[in-house]
Design a protein around this nucleic acid. Sequence first.
DNA 1: TATATCGTATCTTTTGATGATACATATAGG
DNA 2: CCTATATGTATCATCAAAAGATACGATATA
Lengths: 139, 139
Amino acid sequence: MNRDTRLSDVLHVLLHLDQASDPVTSQVLSQSMGTNPAVFRRTMAGLREAGYVTSGKGPGGGWTLAVPLDQISLLDVYTALGCPNLFAIGSRSDNPDCLIERNVNEALAETMRQAESLFTERFGAVTLDTLVPDRPLPN
Amino acid sequence: MNRDTRLSDVLHVLLHLDQASDPVTSQVLSQSMGTNPAVFRRTMAGLREAGYVTSGKGPGGGWTLAVPLDQISLLDVYTALGCPNLFAIGSRSDNPDCLIERNVNEALAETMRQAESLFTERFGAVTLDTLVPDRPLPN
DNA sequence: TATATCGTATCTTTTGATGATACATATAGG
DNA sequence: CCTATATGTATCATCAAAAGATACGATATA
């Protein structure tokens, strides 16, 4: 199964938006993402609702970064996308009658919980400004 | 994206095999996995090659556990399955020209490396005997 | 009003996994 | 040996979810 690249795609777009002074159209941004405007808008809808970007209609319209990059964490973006599933593995079903299945599922679920915490912590600790090339890390 | 349940499925089968004295056929085991014999054999091929189970043809044939559960780790099983992809997220492509893309990809990849290490460590620390119900943990 | 742009519903396509089928191979047992 | 029972595996079909494409209404600018 192909991986979900929306998080990577959206980060890419946000960093590019940061470098633009005027609104950028879905047409242009979708190309930088290798897709089409409708898919792009669908993907960005959550970020707009969360207020990280704004979009304007009509001539001169397009997308604008609404919050400075140092005030957006990777976790914020991930959350705005609807917290897409992180893992490719899982359990087939929860048959509560089979004790073996319960134990197996629990063993996997426990590790996945820990891994999810790891993602959350790391994502929460990274703000987008640190991903901009040639900008010194704040410290 | 549906999750890959092979690891969970196979663990389930191994624990059941541990409780069987005679070989068990693909027919029977595939039902306990909710699939058909051909899919079952395909899934178990790696475990057979790794020596954790043996399979016999002909009447009275079927599958047998070849190694005690306390000598098989979750990591062993995962590896025997061919180390299936753990993550549902990823980067679209590696365009080495775009510095932004490189930074974004690296940020995600670094976290995924850490999460993978977490899986590997945890999986390596769990032997299958600890998943058997009503069997006291060794300590 | 004409044009550009977004928002989104809907349909189509793609893709990888899974399921299904078929058949060759091998083994046990009479 | 012959038959019945299993596995091993190649190949084809099916499926579901995501992505892509299209269309069209709404809105904003000038």
